[in-house]
Structure formats: structure tokens, C-alpha cells
Amino acid sequence: MHIPDGFLSTPVTLGTIGVSVTALTYSFKKVNQTIKPEQIPLMGLLASFVFMIQLFSFPIGVGTSVHLTGALLLSILLGPRAGFIIMAVSLLALSLLFQHGGIFSLGANLLNMGLVGCFVGYGFYRLIPGERWSLIIAGVGSGIISAILCALELAASNMLEMSVALKTMMLIYGVTGLIEGTITLLILDFLRKIKPELLDQLS
């Protein structure tokens, strides 16, 4: 869920912006040292790609639809720091061009989806052996942490009671996380089948 502007109180807005900007600066310093010029158009195209998959939600039946964040996939392909930068770029563009999430709440959205999705998700993926389970656990685990963060932000801004917020967010992010993990797994399988040299050349 992209939190719109106007939902978060001043301390929550400033705090989340602080955390996100710090993480972004850190990722930036690291990526800037190692990036090769041919990766710059690639990062732009992948930002476009993430932007696209976030716009197109797809129905899973029973009147509900979800969309991927792409954070887990990007972190596996390019590493969590580059993935986080791409997430930041596409969330900024989604907010400016499609009013999908606010500008002042960008800090919170980047924290919930980008930071947790890229770093926590990638951490789970690397730490747990066996690709199938590690991806599912990475999806669901980062989904649950995002849900707790999102509920805390809304509750601290006096918008929802903690218990209500937590239940709703757990439901939204839990399902999204499960699907994120599953689809990331399917996409990696697909890439291995169709274009295995792509994954070799990245790792």
C-alpha cells in the first residue's frame, strides 16, 4: 500500500524521511564506487520496469488484485543497494506522475517497501538455505515487517488504532509478500530456462 500525503503526523513524516535519506545516501556512496557506465542505462530501464509492474495490478480471483513491488527481484539481480536506489527512483516517479503515494510520505513508503523489501528480503534470501523456501520466507517475512512498520506509522499519527491497523496491514502485506516470493521464484525459474547466461553474467 502506498501511503498518500496527509495521513502521517509531522514527527512521523520527518522521522521516516530521515531514515530513508540516510539509507539512500549510504547506498549511493557504495554504488557510486563500483558502478560501471553500462549499468546506468540498465538501472534506468529497470526503474521503468518496476514502475510498470507497480502500476499493473493483476487479479487473483475473488475480487482482489495485487501488484508486486519488485524489490526482492531487483536485490537478487543487482544487489540490495542498487535495488534500493531503483526502488527510490520509481517510487518518486510514481508519486510525481501518477499520484500513487505522496511526496512527503515518500520517506515512509520507501522505508516500508524499498528498505525492508530490498535489505531484509535479501537478508532472508541469503541466510536461509534452499532457494524455494528462502524466497517464500523472504517474501512473507519482509511483508510482515513492512506491515508492522506501516501500522506503527499510521497509529503514531493517530490515524488508526494500533490493533486495527496491524490486522489490516498484516492482511494486505502478508498476501502481497507471499505472492511476491512466489512470483520472484517463478521469474527466476523462467530466466534460468530462457536466458541462463543473464544470471551467470550478473553473479
Binding site: 530501464l45 512470483i183 517463478l186 521469474i187 543473464l198
Partner: peptide, 27 residues
């Protein structure tokens, strides 16, 4: 259901491969 999820992830996979190829050509 499950098949639709598979179709959907194949689409994303194709899109991803094309993005990589295009990035290379553009570069």
C-alpha cells in the same frame, strides 16, 4: 488461479529480459 500466476510471471520475465537487452543496445 495458479496457472494465471504462472502466465503473469512469464510476462514479467519476458519484459525483464527485453529490458536487459534493450539496456545493452542503448548503452
Amino acid at each position: 488461479g495458479w496457472k494465471r500466476i504462472k502466465v503473469y510471471s512469464n510476462i514479467i520475465g519476458v519484459l525483464l529480459i527485453h529490458s536487459f537487452e534493450r539496456a545493452e543496445n542503448v548503452y
